[in-house]
Structures are given as structure tokens and as C-alpha cells.
Amino acid sequence: MPIIVYAIIDLKRIADISILTNLLFKNFGIHFDSISTSDLGAIISTGTPEAISINRESVLKYAAIIDYIAQNYSILPLRYGSIVATVDEGINLLVKNNDIFLTTLHKIYNKEEYSIRVFISQRHQDSTINRPLPTTTSNIPQILLGTTKSKNYLLKKFQTHVTEESKKAYFDQLKSVFIGDLQRLTHLLDFKKNQSPECIMDVVLLIERSKRADLVAMVADMQLKHPEHNIILTGPWPPYNFTQIKIQ
């Protein structure tokens, strides 16, 4: 029967996996087991047809299990669908990837992942950023001055372009201020591409577990300095963004 793999752990940091699997059983009512090599261990469960069926409920349950383990231990979280055919294959996976697993586990040891998203408020955007460019001759290239259809068309495009550029410059400047602040806590930052034009910054970061209160205080301070923007801090998340490994 196939087995579901949830998380990889460094055995030097967690000596007794059974404590963890018992805790998981109490919380989730699933019988968990483990496989191990001399350095690494993996939390697994039997892949019954119900357990490996793809549906929203199993995805959420898998995520909740990973989240629970990550809140208590430093782990390399696997993604939903991490299934191997046999226990031997699972052990093979640990052996083949021993070095990269250990290096990554070392990187995330005693750390937690958080996400910060900064959005520009609609009010601020309307009043400041998206305000149309004043059409004075001083800020329009001479070549666009005229009354032909082409020039009128290009002038409108140019005004939109200047507004977009100034918005971008404003975002970049603000982002660099935020990055400067965050770098006082950690250099492990991973920037995501902004998913909407109102998003100034979308970043995930990895910090020491003990620095959680510092991070919350720092974000509150950022908000205080920039009340015109909306900031949302979430976490702690399992360190998915800092454990992306090409498994052999």
C-alpha cells in the first residue's frame, strides 16, 4: 500500500519521533508512523484509498497536519500529493536527498515563515497616485505639441505612461523603506510578483521563532508611519517558500 509523506525532520534535533506521532494521533485521529535513516526521519501515514483521494477536505486536512507539526518542530514540509509506493522507496528518498534535506533543515531550524502584503488604499490612490498629469507645456515633450490626430493620441498615451511611471517609482521607494526595516530582522526574504495593481509589496520572510513579537511590533510601526496604506501580516506558516527542493 502506498504511503503519504508529510514532513522530513532532522533526527539530531528531534530524538523521539513517537512523541510527535502520538500527538498527531490525539489531534487528528489518524495513525501516523515514521521512517528513518541515521540522519533523517519522515512522518508518514498509510495511503488508504480515502486518504489519497483528491478532494478539498483531504487537501485541507493535509495542510492542517503540516501546519500543526511546523508550529511545534522545525520541519521540511512536503506538499499535498507526496506519496511513495512503499516504505523502501520512502527510505530511498531520504538517502538520495540526504545532503540537501539536511542543509535546508539547518537553514530553517527554529525559524517560522510569515507573509506581509502592503496595499495602497483606494482613497490615497485616487487622490495622489492616479491624479491625471497636469497638461502644461513644461511637462509635455515638445514633439507632442500640436493638434494632429496622431499627436493627440500619443499625448494621451504619454500622460498614462507618466502616471504609471510615477506610481512605480512611488511603489519602489516605499518598498525599499519596508525592506530596510525588515532586513533588521532577517535577510531571508522572498518577494512575490504583485498580483494586483494596488499591491505595493508581497513578501514572505523567515525569522527566528523568538522574534515573532518583534515582527508584529515592526509591522505595527510600519503601519503607523504609513497610515495611508493597508498592511496585512499573516503566519506563522510552514516554511514552504524556503524549502523548495528539486527532489531526486
Binding site: F119, S121, Q122, T234
Partner: peptide
């Protein structure tokens, strides 16, 4: 999981 948010909840 939301540790902090400020500003307009609707906009967020």
C-alpha cells in the same frame, strides 16, 4: 493566522 492588519478591511 492574521497577526496584524490595519486600514480598510473591505479593501483588504
Amino acid at each position: 493566522k492574521v497577526l496584524f492588519y490595519s486600514g480598510s478591511a473591505n479593501e483588504i
